[in-house]
Design a protein around this nucleic acid. Structure first.
Lengths: 343, 343
DNA sequence: CTGAAAGCGCTTACAG
DNA sequence: CTGAAAGCGCTTACAG
């Protein structure tokens, strides 16, 4: 049985002695096809290794069965510095898409790019998942445009009031609060915060707010001298911790807005001869794989990436199907290891 | 200017007072379009935020402008354990695709899945990139089927004679040889190898062969008691190193077939009270980000993931275009850090 | 339960 | 330089 090129539904129709639409119906499981006819058609399709041409069916149905994951990179274009947390999200999103029968296009984007809507306008994807850190205020206007154009999208980020579009994020405030409360419970009093704490980085800002709240609940006022800006890289964490030490602002604990920052800080503390947790307790945020590997293990706030991927994908699919979707905040949980033991 | 739904080339044609094919030509940069007409068409297209419908153009052209990356997972389905090396490859492949105008579909696959050819048969992708560790002999027959079906694909792996299809890999033999020679130059004599050394894991096997060759060049015979099987996870490395210690096979250095194995071994050595590098020098393979982060830094063999991604993508595109493509072996380089300093 | 017909939005000979 | 026509491979009313 040879067919020039790939088999089409018409080839199968000829072979089965039916019309091409009947083949289409049989393949899609239409109940109005004679069981015997369907069996014959399916057998032939299998033998010919036939696959429905997605370009044709998508064109006809005006959809693509594909989601696009747009990953926004930090300024640094260095592959190796991508936050492992996002890799975990990528894995989870990929799996969630596969389970729901969607394909996933992956694209790395610069924040500055003209990325809005390209994928959906060209029918390459039915909707977008936006992922990645960066200056939020820089991207806000673009998100606004996506909304105006009616593009279907969800983004991973702080689910705050007034956000354009649908945001899914973890409970950054609660995580920041709980880990700080834990450090306080270990007897720490001078707790530094490493990470940006402004509208430009809403997720970090929420973590900072939780931190400040926990301090106040313990009767302490956040000390501005103990907050140092940092983005999510080891390097930035290293620099921030060194700056804190150089400034001579005494501290007995350190809450980093991400694990990568915490890991950089750990190395900086070690270089300065400080012991963890004896001299300084350290905690991070994310629970990346490395957190459980370093010595001592890094206490941190775990984001459930599996659930996050599922919620992102499910929300986007509902959006595409025209159903109402609310922003969601997912729970976090503390993972306590040696780095925050009592001093 | 309102058009119900998304604008099509026909909408633009009406607005520009030309036929629809002329719009198509103008948009694709055909030289036979009047410059003034083209300008008018482009202006309207921009104003309407028009994007060519990929489903339609792909259907017409019988291609997709998309590559599919099939990522094969190790038996373990745990997201967090994915080898960071592959994440780096993913980043590099994504970028290489973007630069060449191809979209990238990403799919995680179980080795056992019925993955052969699905993507290309359904016209979702013009070709496949296969990536991931696992038992090679299990997948060989499937690769053979891909070849028989004329599917376009390249895979990352050992570029050995007799492989089905086109394999691109790094110089595993040379890397294994050079890092072992380095350990020997540091005065080490009893060098253990952690990792599978059989046809089931051709890349590891090549690294082992390089290791054995370097030993022989130094007048040493590989000691079977110093080789312990391991797959690419920290856990496996931890277990393998512990087994080696428990067996009492004395060794003063350890070459792990991957960085993850080496990192697991480092923790195991530490738990046994052994100092690195004083008591045992340690080296890995891959140069993942964590290698430069741990203390002491992990000496390793760097695979150039940027080049690897580019070569994979370029090779696949050439394959799709019907050009001849040879398997390739890419150079590696040593990255020496504290873990292999003289004892 | 099945077939003839229309049409999704493009691209590309073909004719002028 | 431009238009009328055909066709890529499907899916889905519509009619029977």
């Amino acid at each position: 049985m040879t067919i020039k090129g790939k088999a089409t539904s018409l080839d199968i129709a000829h072979l089965a002695g039916v019309s091409q639409p009947t083949v289409s119906r049989a393949l899609r499981g239409s109940p109005s096809v004679n069981p015997e006819t369907r069996r014959r058609i399916l057998a032939i399709a299998r033998e010919l290794n036939y696959k429905v041409d997605k370009n044709a069916s998508n064109l006809r149905c005006q959809q693509s069965g594909t989601l696009a994951l747009l990953f926004f990179e930090d300024p640094t274009p260095d592959d190796s510095l991508i936050n492992p947390f996002f890799h975990s999200m990528l894995g989870s999103i990929t799996r969630a898409c596969a389970l729901r029968g969607y394909d996933l296009l992956v694209s790395f984007q610069q924040l500055s790019n003209n990325w809005h809507a390209d994928f959906e306008d060209s029918h390459k994807a039915d909707g977008l998942i936006l992922l990645g850190y960066g200056d939020y205020l820089e991207s806000e206007s673009k998100l606004q445009r996506l909304v105006e154009q009616g593009t279907h999208f969800v983004r991973w980020g702080a689910a705050l009031p007034g956000e354009p579009g649908v945001s899914i994020g973890c409970d950054n405030f609660q995580g920041g609060h709980d880990i700080t409360a834990h450090l306080l419970a270990q007897g720490r009093r001078r707790i530094a915060f490493l990470g940006h704490a402004s509208d430009h980085y809403p997720e970090f800002f929420e973590r900072y707010r939780g931190y400040a709240q926990a301090l106040r609940e313990a009767g302490l006022e956040p000390d501005p001298a103990l907050q140092v800006d940092a983005i999510t890289t080891e390097q930035s964490g290293h620099v921030a911790a060194a700056a804190l030490l150089d400034a001579g602002a005494g501290f007995d604990a350190l809450f980093a807005a991400s694990d990568l920052i915490a890991l950089g800080a750990l190395n900086s503390l070690r270089e300065h001869g400080l012991r963890v947790p004896e001299d300084v307790a350290v905690a991070g945020f994310d629970d990346i794989a490395m957190a459980s590997f370093v010595q001592p293990g890094l206490s941190t706030v775990q984001q459930d990436t599996k659930q996050a991927g599922e919620v992102l994908v499910d929300s986007l699919i509902r959006l595409i199907q025209g159903e109402p979707v609310e922003p969601r905040t997912l729970p976090v949980r503390l993972v306590l290891r040696g780095s925050s033991a009592a001093g």
